[in-house]
Design a protein around this nucleic acid. Structure first.
Lengths: 166, 166
DNA sequence: TTGTATGCAAAAACTTTGCATCCCA
DNA sequence: TGGGATGCAAAGTTTTTGCATACAA
């Protein structure tokens, strides 16, 4: 991994108010560098040989905080029992195989009647779908506003249209 | 719950080749009757008092098989560590609060620039989104075709456009 | 230096499994 | 009756927590 890329990751960490540690950089970098969608366990096993001092707790904590700050994306479950992570938080579609639990990405979000064609091109047979927006409900916003408890640096709110009409 | 409603659930179970047992009916019915998106644990705790013989394993197994057959929907994680279920498999958007982990439904799927307005009406502030299609990847289809191992009753494939353009 | 982040290990929580029994079709 | 479904309890995974130490800023 070149310096440029590492610098970029460092910038991102700093931009959301996180300290830059070797462990964080390793975890973040590994996730961003892969097209797979690993679990905390998988990342730990991948990194541990090179970074023997790394602990599982750190991996879990780090992934959680990176997702919280919007640097990575938490993918629910892929049908196995564990949480998977996606190093690219850019809005995109995941094609999740209910058989092998693999996850493919589709960056041109296909909508309307176009969906079938695009996804069909990937040879993917759809059984079910799930669309989720993560954020804060009205109640939690109200509670936060009145209690001032969550006055820290919050993550930004997406302001653009998330989906193109075609 | 009236007889009509129960009959409907019974029909659904039979239509996907599942036997009708008191436990299944109770679990299915409880999930369909609520607007919340409970976990296996939550359903167990809700039903156990009325159905003392019910075991946790049955709840986990039943939810898994109902989701497999498309009668209910498995929602990845809501940010807590557990799998949530949605009693309505009709394609719709979930608004998941990263603070309280509550899940709201939005049945008119808002797309394009309409998204912000519709979701804004719900008072929801979006931080991230996730769109997922579940199904079978090309490799698994090929493997199934050649080995004939998964020759049992499969779930149907969605054939209609999943999302309306507006 | 100061508060965050880490490592370690134990604990908690969630989920699956094996097997004998039961019971729906 | 026969194969699927259940209950029970134990085991397996995944994830969180507490606390002392280390370290980035």
């Amino acid at each position: 991994l070149g310096r440029t890329n590492t610098d970029n990751l460092v910038q991102q960490l700093k931009s959301v108010g996180l300290r830059v540690t070797p462990q964080r950089l390793a975890i973040f970098s590994a996730l961003v560098s892969t097209d797979s969608h690993p679990t905390a366990q998988a990342l730990f096993e991948q990194l541990h040989p090179q970074l023997p001092s790394l602990s599982q707790a750190t991996v879990y904590n780090t992934l959680q905080i990176l997702a919280e700050r919007g640097l990575i994306l938490e993918i629910g479950t892929a049908g196995d029992g564990a949480v998977h992570y996606d190093g690219d938080p850019t809005p995109h579609v995941n094609l999740i195989c209910t058989n092998c639990h693999g996850v493919q990405d589709l960056f041109e979000i296909p909508l309307g009647s176009v969906a079938k064609d695009k996804i069909g091109q990937a040879g993917f047979k759809i059984h079910a779908m799930h669309i989720a927006f993560y954020g804060q409900c009205q109640d939690c916003q109200d509670a936060a506003a009145s209690s001032r408890l969550s006055a820290g640096k919050g993550v930004g709110v997406l302001n653009e249209p998330y989906l193109s009409a075609e």
